[in-house]
């Protein structure tokens, strides 16, 4: 049980926990816009943490450092907000109903039509 193993195990556990939290959020949150929150962010951090564990493990176990996994981290962190944005745009387009107590629910049409908030109020 070396320090490397300990660090790898720690990052793996953190990553697994965040992936689980993201999936639980996807499972139990009530409406689509709220469901969008959990997977795009908790899962992104989770996969980042697991890839970090992989970097640590292979850098000290294998021959020479391995930072190839850093490319996947970068790719995930670049694309997660973009797919979240496209999904929420599509959800507005097909008129998904948010939860009833959502703040500013009455202005959903203004958001869909991309009008300026100030000019409408």
């Amino acid at each position: 049980m070396t320090l490397i193993d300990l660090a790898t195990a720690l990052f793996l556990l953190i990553g697994g926990l965040f992936l689980l939290v993201g999936s639980i959020g996807l499972f139990r949150l009530p409406d689509f816009f709220m469901r969008l929150h959990a997977p795009t962010k908790a899962s992104t951090l989770g996969i980042g943490s697991i890839l970090m564990a992989s970097i640590i493990f292979f850098s000290f176990k294998g021959d020479g450092i391995s930072i190839k996994e850093f490319l996947i981290i970068l790719f995930m962190f670049l694309t997660a907000p973009i797919s979240a944005h496209m999904l929420s745009k599509a959800a507005l387009h097909v008129k998904q109903k948010p939860r009833q107590d959502t703040l500013n629910l009455d202005r959903l049409n203004a958001i869909r039509d991309r009008t300026n908030w100030a000019s409408r109020s």
């Binding site: 996807l26 997977p39 899962s43």
Partner: peptide, 17 residues
């Protein structure tokens, strides 16, 4: 269908992990 899309997206991430 969007709920299915986002579930599939999360499945991709979990598969990578």
């Amino acid at each position: 269908i969007l709920d299915r899309v986002i579930a599939l997206d999360t499945m991709y991430i979990n598969a990578i992990a």
